[in-house]
Design a protein around this nucleic acid. Structure first.
Length: 385
RNA sequence: GGCGUCGUCGCCAAGUGGCAAGGCAAGGGUCUGCAAAACCCUCAUCGCGGGUUCGAUUCCCGCCGACGCCUCCA
């Protein structure tokens, strides 16, 4: 059985879903820019996670969102003088094409914020019934005080959060009448740009609301695995927990929280604001998809990963060598013992790809036909042959 | 301030309570008209100080240091 590190409990626990599919939700992209290696690493990590579960007989129901309405899309659309919907659709297509080239195990559902407004309203109504929403002139807010465990995921104290919020530019944009400076918008009343009618007035949804309501809509009140980049822990995932657990009165909202470490360039996290990104598209110009998968997955997913051209280049040789050693033959069921079993066990041990690949690379040139077939199975789970 | 990752050969990076993977670079060699490629060989007492132990790089405590995140962000 797969064992995974859970950010909330800060320990490794087995992923159990007896008699049903494992439910997994991963925070996706806001499509206004091209897919970079950080996106690819994160999504390939959950691709691998799903493949491991499925290969070991555990069906998976995987949902991922596309934030197709967001201030950043509106800004980019204005800058480039294109319609925000047009921009979003174009960038989403590009992103899906990039991921397809990486042989991404696509989510079973890819949902869009603009298509889920009814689900969002339902969630806000549920929060209202719990007394966990209040309306101010500039928006409907969630009172953080309604959630006694707020801060559990990130480990931040209330004082620490407030200290952080004081220095933020966005804090000035929030409604000054909030009961607590940590309270966040469920729905914003805005006049400019695209807006939607809601029971509270025209406006746009708060971005934390999107994920909570989509999860509830597509997967239910509680899920097995919630994933995303480590940069989303606070405030995004913390706020999701607050909304969802308050609305459903069920906890935990997600049994396991899996966060992928940052992809860095020059010692700094790749990010849109810093512009220090390496795009998947460009990487695929100098290497091939299997090699890029090998490169991105051959570092433990929770660790930060410094992009290194030399390593990327080497990955091509490694993938080619594995291809030569394992050939194109059939996959074989992994037996109870032997290198393929050891490699598969490594994958099940909090996705230890490094150990698994090392075993496969060592065993592949030495293996007989039957064993090679087993090794192919593991190599194909990782997607490197 | 908090959360987190990490300090292992010149560089990247695994790993283990008992001789420290691998890759790149470097040096030597085989081969070659010279070279390239290929192949072979060589190359580390694991940040500092305590503790536990027969024995710690590996476990515990403290320290020093690096970096990231906490702002939209995967």
């Amino acid at each position: 059985m797969l064992r995974l590190y859970d950010t909330r409990r800060r320990a490794i626990h087995p992923v159990r879903a007896p008699g049903r599919a494992v439910t997994m939700y991963v925070c996706g992209v806001t499509p206004y820019d091209t897919t970079h290696l950080g996106h690819a690493r994160t999504f390939l990590t959950f691709d691998l996670l799903a493949r491991i579960l499925e290969a070991t007989g555990h069906p998976v129901r995987y949902v991922q969102n596309v934030t197709d309405i967001d201030e950043s899309i509106l800004q980019r659309a204005a800058r480039d003088n294109v319609g925000w919907r047009e921009l979003g659709k174009r960038e989403e297509r590009a992103y899906l094409a990039d991921m397809k080239r990486l042989r991404w195990r696509r989510p079973d559902v890819i949902c869009h914020a603009t298509q889920e407004l009814p689900a969002m309203f339902t969630l806000v109504r549920a929060l209202e019934r719990r007394g966990a929403a209040y309306t101010l002139p500039r928006g409907v807010y969630f009172p953080v005080a309604a959630q006694p465990r707020y801060g559990e995921l990130s480990g931040l104290s209330a004082a620490a959060m407030k200290r952080i919020l004081v220095g933020q530019d966005d804090a000035k944009l929030e409604d000054p009448g909030r009961r607590d400076p940590r309270d966040f918008a469920l729905w914003r009343f805005v006049d400019d740009g695209p807006t939607w009618p809601s029971p509270w007035g025209r406006g746009r949804p708060g971005w934390h609301l999107e994920c909570s309501s989509m999860i509830r809509h597509h997967l239910g009140d509680q899920i097995d695995i919630h994933g995303g980049g480590a940069d989303l822990i606070y405030p995004h995932h913390e706020n999701e927990i607050a909304q969802s657990e308050t609305a459903s009165r069920k906890r935990p909202f997600s049994r396991t929280w899996a966060h992928v470490g940052a992809m860095r360039l020059g010692g700094k996290k790749m990010s849109k604001s810093d512009g220090n990104m390496v795009f998947v598209r460009d990487a695929l110009n100098v290497t091939d998809p299997r090699a890029l998968r090998l490169y991105l997955l051959d570092r433990h997913y929770r660790k930060p990963f410094d992009h290194d051209e030399a390593s990327l280049d080497r990955a091509r040789l490694r993938a080619a060598a594995l291809g030569d050693a394992l050939g194109r033959g059939r996959s074989g069921a992994v037996g109870r013992a032997g290198p393929a079993r050891e490699a598969l066990s490594a994958l099940e041990d909090d996705l230890n790809v490094v150990r698994a690949l090392k075993i496969v690379e060592w065993a592949a040139p030495r293996a007989e036909a039957a064993e090679r077939a087993e090794l192919r199975t593991v190599a194909r789970i990782v997607g490197v042959i």
